[in-house]
């Protein structure tokens, strides 16, 4: 595919800000609309934009595909790990109240970690699917 100056340059300039916006959505899940799923999609969309404008090879150098499957598993592990941790601390699965001294802080940290797990998994799986489709054509 031949190179288009405008798209490659704009793609590069936008990406850090798209990624930061994704992380902002990720960590403000319990303050406004947002959360892990949207953040994961936005993060993946930023990388996909880079792949579309600068080529899939460049995007694969930026985010090595080999890393994605472990990351997807890590996200699920984080989710499950928080649940198991709450059980080990003597409550039900995903009852966050025990994660800190008082229940409010516990809920806060619990949701933050759970959402992080969701975000990592969603972003990694979206990129895996995208790479699987594009690398088949090249």
């Amino acid at each position: 595919m031949n190179d288009d100056i405008v798209l490659t340059v704009i793609g590069k300039l936008l990406i850090p800000f798209i990624l930061l916006f994704a992380l902002y959505v990720q960590f403000h899940g319990d303050f406004g609309p947002g959360g892990g799923f949207q953040a994961g999609v936005l993060f993946a969309a930023g990388i996909i934009l880079y792949a579309l404008t600068n080529g899939t090879a460049a995007a694969m150098r930026l985010i090595p595909p080999g890393l994605l499957a472990p990351l997807a598993a890590l996200g699920v592990l984080l989710y499950g790990g928080v649940g198991v941790a709450t059980m080990l601390l003597g409550r039900h699965f995903l009852n966050y109240s025990v994660l800190a001294q008082d229940a409010v802080h516990g809920q806060h940290y619990g949701i933050l970690l759970i959402e992080l797990g969701v975000g990592i998994t969603v972003a990694a799986v979206m990129l895996l699917i995208f790479f699987a489709f594009t690398s088949r054509e090249d």
């Binding site: 916006f21 996909i48 934009l49």
Partner: peptide
């Protein structure tokens, strides 16, 4: 407004794709 920004972003990436 956060949703608006998100939508603008996804719309742009979608059109380019």
């Amino acid at each position: 407004l956060d949703i608006a920004i998100t939508y603008a972003l996804i719309n742009f990436v979608g059109v380019i794709a």
